[in-house]
C-alpha cells in the first residue's frame, strides 16, 4: 500500500516536472536587457539605487551637503557641483580598470573627515574645502566606476547614478539648513559626529 502511494506520488512529481518545469522556467525568464551584464539592469533605476545601497557612500554624500550648508554660500552649491564632476573623472578611471589603492579606505576616511569637519564646525578657505571634497570624490567615483557593469549604452544608468548622488547632497543641504537656528546647529554638528563615527566603523571593517 505504502509502495503504491509512493509510486503514485513519484508519478505525480514526474508528471509535474515534465509539464510544469519547462513552463516555470519559461515564466521565470527575465527580459533581455540590451544594456546589462550578469543580469544587472543598466537602466535609470539601477543607476539610481547604486549609490543609495552603499551606506558608506550615502553618509559621505550627505556629509558633503551638510558641510556645504554649514559653510554657507558659495560652498553650499560649489561643493555639490565639484563632487559629481570629479566623481565622474574617478568613475572614468575606474571604468578604464586603472587601479587606485585603498578605495574603500578612502571612502571611509571621506566620511570621517567630512563628518569631523561638520562636527567641529570647521570653516577652512573655500578652495581647501573644494579640493578636499574633490579628492574624496575620486575614491567614490572610482568605486562606482569599477563596479559599473560594462554594457552597450549606459546613459540612463549614469543619469540615475548622478541624480541619486545629487539627491543625497540635497538631503545633506536640507538637514544642514537647520544650522540657522541654535538648536539646529547642535543637531547638524551631532549628525556630523555620527557620520564621523560611522566612518570609523567602516574603516575598522576595511582594515
Amino acid at each position: 500500500m505504502n509502495l503504491q502511494a509512493t509510486n503514485r506520488v513519484a508519478a505525480a512529481v514526474a508528471a509535474a516536472t515534465r509539464h510544469l518545469l519547462p513552463l516555470a522556467l519559461a515564466l521565470a525568464a527575465t527580459p533581455a536587457f540590451a544594456h546589462s551584464e550578469n543580469g544587472v539592469a543598466i537602466d535609470f533605476w539601477g543607476g539610481f539605487t547604486h549609490p543609495i545601497f552603499g551606506p558608506d557612500h550615502v553618509i559621505a554624500m550627505v556629509a558633503v551637503g551638510l558641510w556645504g550648508a554649514f559653510l554657507g554660500a558659495p560652498a553650499i552649491w560649489l561643493l555639490p557641483v565639484v563632487f559629481p564632476l570629479v566623481m565622474a573623472v574617478g568613475g572614468a578611471v575606474g571604468v578604464a580598470g586603472v587601479p587606485l589603492p585603498g578605495v574603500e579606505t578612502g571612502i571611509a576616511i571621506s566620511a570621517i573627515a567630512l563628518g569631523a569637519m561638520v562636527a567641529f564646525a570647521a570653516k577652512p578657505p573655500l578652495w581647501i574645502a573644494a579640493v578636499l571634497v574633490g579628492a574624496f570624490a575620486i575614491f567614490h567615483g572610482h568605486a562606482h566606476g569599477a563596479e559599473l557593469p560594462i554594457g552597450a549604452d549606459a546613459v540612463a544608468f549614469s543619469m540615475g547614478f548622478v541624480i541619486a548622488t545629487g539627491m543625497l547632497h540635497l538631503t545633506g543641504i536640507a538637514f544642514g539648513g537647520l544650522s540657522h537656528w541654535p538648536a539646529g546647529r547642535i543637531a547638524v554638528r551631532a549628525m556630523g559626529g555620527v557620520i564621523c563615527l560611522l566612518g570609523f566603523a567602516y574603516l575598522g571593517k576595511f582594515l
Binding site: 555639490p80 557641483v81 565639484v82 559629481p84 564632476l85 566623481m87 565622474a88 573623472v89 568613475g91 572614468a92 571604468v95 578604464a96 566606476g145 559599473l148 560594462i150 554594457g151 549604452d153 549606459a154 546613459v155 549614469s158 543619469m159 547614478f161 548622478v162 541624480i163 545629487g166
Partner: peptide, 15 residues
C-alpha cells in the same frame, strides 16, 4: 550643468 557634464564623462568612458 555639473550633472550633465558628469553623465557625459561617465558614459563616454564606459563606451
Amino acid at each position: 550643468g555639473s550633472w550633465i557634464a558628469a553623465i557625459g564623462i561617465m558614459v563616454l568612458s564606459l563606451r
